[in-house]
Nucleic acid binder design. Structure first.
Lengths: 193, 193
DNA sequence: TAGCGTCGGTGACGCTCCATAACGAACGTG
DNA sequence: CACGTTCGTTATGGAGCGTCACCGACGCTA
C-alpha cells in the first residue's frame, strides 16, 4: 500500500495546494519573520477565504511545524550534497552552511533562533538534526578516533552558529566588521586543533 | 526645570507603575516568550483595564524596546561588575555571561535571538553593545596589541554565543551532551590562541 | 453514464488582542 | 478651595485565529 506512486487527482490537487500555502508562508516569513505569519494573509494572497486553509493544515502551529521540518530537510540535503561532492572539507561544509543561511536568514532562525518555551520538536525533526550531526562527524579529514571526530564536529558546529547567528542578527553590522572574514577566521581555527 | 533630583509624588507613582508593568512583562516573557507578550494580560494582572497601560507606554513595541534596553543594561552591568572584581579572567567573563543567560534564557534571546526584519535598535542600545565589547577587549590577560585584543574579544564573543544559543535553545538536550562541559571546553580554546 | 459520498470553500460567529477616542474622577499645586 | 494636569474607565474599530453549518463540485463506482 501507501501507493505514493499513483496519485489520484484529488491527492495531487491537495498536494499542490499545500505547497502553494507553504510557498506563501515562506514569502511572509522571509519578509516579516515567523512571528508575523498570518493565515488570513496567506489565504487572501491565494484568492480564498481564511477558513479554507484549515482543510490543509490543522492550524498555525501545524503549518509552522511543517515549515520547520522543511527547513531542516533543506539544510540536511544541502549539507549531504556538499559532503558527497568529493572534496567535502569541513571548512567547505561551514561555507555551505553559511551560504544556506544567508540565502534566507529567517529560515535559518526558524531552526536556530529563539525557541518557544513550551515547544518540543517532533521525533522526525530531531532525527534530521542527528543526520546533520552525522555528516559533520564523517567529514574529511577523517579522524581515526570516533570520539575525536564527534568532538571536532561539535566544536565546529557551535563556532559556525556563533558567527552565523551574530552575523544574521546584524550584531556585526553596527560595528563595522566584515562577517565573511570573521567567518573564515573561525573556520581556520578548526584546522589545527 | 528638569529637577531630576527631587521627585514629585506623581513622578514616583508613575515610575513605580512603569516598573510594575515591566515586572509583569518579564514574567510573561520568561514563561511564554517575547512574542506572546500581551498588554491586556499585563493590565489584567495589575488589576486595571487594557488601555490604561497606554498612559505609560506608547504601545507594545515601545514596551519591548525598553525591555531590550534593560536586558542590555543588565548584561553590561553584570559584565562590568565581574570585570571590576579583580580577577577578571576572560574565561570568567564567559562564565558570567553564561550564568546571566541561564538565569533567564528568554531575556538572553531578547538580545541575541531571532531579529525582527524591520527592526533597528535605537542608538543608546548599540552604545551598550559597544560597552560590552569594550569590557571584553580590556579583559585580562592584557594584550599589548590593541588589534590582537579586539580580535581575541571578537572570537571569544562569537564562540560564547555559539555554545550559549545552542544550549539555551535546547539543541544539545536531545543529543545527550553536557552543555557545561562543552562551554568550558570552548573557554579553554581561547586560552592558547 | 448516472448517482452518491467525500472533499473543498464560504460566510457567520466568538474569542483575544492592539490601539484610539471620549468621558469622568482623582490628585496636588497655587 | 479652585483649577488644570494626570490617570483610569468604557466604548469602538480593526485584525487575527479557530469552529461551525451549509453548500457546491468533483470523482469514484456501480
Amino acid at each position: 500500500m501507501a501507493d505514493a506512486a499513483t496519485s489520484s487527482p484529488r491527492e495531487r490537487y491537495r498536494a499542490r495546494m499545500r505547497t502553494d500555502i507553504k510557498e506563501q508562508a515562506w514569502e511572509q516569513i522571509a519578509t516579516a519573520g515567523a512571528s508575523a505569519l498570518s493565515l488570513n494573509a496567506i489565504a487572501k494572497r491565494l484568492g480564498m477565504s481564511g477558513p479554507a486553509l484549515y482543510r490543509y493544515y490543522a492550524g498555525r502551529d501545524d503549518l509552522i511545524t511543517e515549515l520547520i521540518g522543511d527547513a531542516y530537510r533543506s539544510l540536511a540535503d544541502t549539507m549531504a550534497e556538499a559532503a558527497a561532492s568529493g572534496e567535502a572539507d569541513l571548512a567547505e561544509l561551514g561555507r555551505t552552511t553559511r551560504r544556506w543561511a544567508l540565502a534566507d536568514p529567517q529560515r535559518y532562525f526558524l531552526i536556530y533562533g529563539t525557541p518557544v518555551p513550551g515547544y518540543h520538536s517532533p521525533a522526525d525533526i530531531t532525527e534530521i538534526a542527528n543526520e546533520i550531526y552525522a555528516i559533520l562527524v564523517a567529514a574529511r579529514p577523517t579522524l581515526p578516533d570516533t570520539a575525536a571526530a564527534q568532538g571536532r564536529a561539535l566544536t565546529f558546529w557551535t563556532r559556525v552558529h556563533g558567527a552565523l547567528s551574530l552575523e544574521l542578527a546584524g550584531h556585526f553590522a553596527g560595528m563595522g566588521l566584515d562577517p565573511a572574514a570573521l567567518f573564515e577566521a573561525e573556520l581556520d581555527s578548526l584546522r589545527a586543533p
